[in-house]
Write a protein that binds this DNA or RNA. Structure first.
Lengths: 125, 125
DNA sequence: ACCAAAGATTGATGAACTTCGATATGAGTA
DNA sequence: TACTCATATCGAAGTTCATCAATCTTTGGT
């Protein structure tokens, strides 16, 4: 059970990081992210883990003025309006899109810095 | 139906990009990624969309020598060995981890440039 | 050849997710 | 007020996913 790399060393009470106090076999390198951080970051990647949502981001980003309303988005994706609304809500909840209602229409745009913040979640793993 | 922004213009046969030849209402900005590209990229984000897989990447990255074997990974995550093997396979299939078998042990390490390539998938949306 | 240990694979179960049709909400208009 | 249109929400159906226990495969040692 994990004896090949010297963990379970009895003489050395190693300085446990706040992360993973119960772990013994993590091979004594850099501390890794804890479960809470992992869940936070995973929730953002979950929002990106659907091809239709990636296309929504792509279309919104490429639209003139940097914004698009739901009626502009249903046809290119070949999805029903409730489904598109659902996906947009997921992207908004993930902090990637911003929603602004003007009159009857709801305009969606990229949250400034959201892409950079997300790439940071990967680079700082 | 999408009449507020001038799509469905009858006089102009617009040069349809290979992407989305059937779309009419995408508001005439930059071309967006097609469904195939979206599925390719989503498959990578799907691999990242699980907290335990993010922790696996984090632990592997932080391990001495940049590699870790399965027995080093099951305990910190508090998951069974088959489950960890399953997650590792998903990360390997996504091109994020490399697997090298030495003796009885399987050592996993980050694929060089994988993180940068993944952030590129986001920035080029 | 036999045994033990590490890791992968299989099959099952419960949860989460995508999608849709139907309906509700809310703003603009006659 | 009544009507229409854009969007959001609800409920259901089908699919995918995470996890586990059990089993198989492979490697090293005796």
């Amino acid at each position: 059970m994990c004896v090949h790399n010297g963990c379970m060393n009895p003489g050395e009470t190693l300085e446990l990081t706040p992360v993973d106090a119960e772990a013994c076999c993590e091979p004594s390198g850099q501390p890794s992210i804890d479960d809470y951080e992992a869940q936070l970051r995973a929730s953002v990647f979950k929002a990106l883990a659907d091809p239709n949502r990636l296309r929504l981001l792509s279309i919104v980003r490429g639209s003139e003025g940097g914004e698009a309303c739901v009626c502009d988005l249903t046809q290119p994706l070949n999805l029903g309006q409730p489904t598109v609304s659902h996906h947009l809500k997921i992207l908004v909840d993930a902090g990637l899109l911003h929603r602004e209602k003007r009159g009857t229409w709801a305009y969606y745009s990229l949250v400034p810095g959201a892409i950079e913040r997300t790439t940071g979640l990967l680079e700082s793993l």
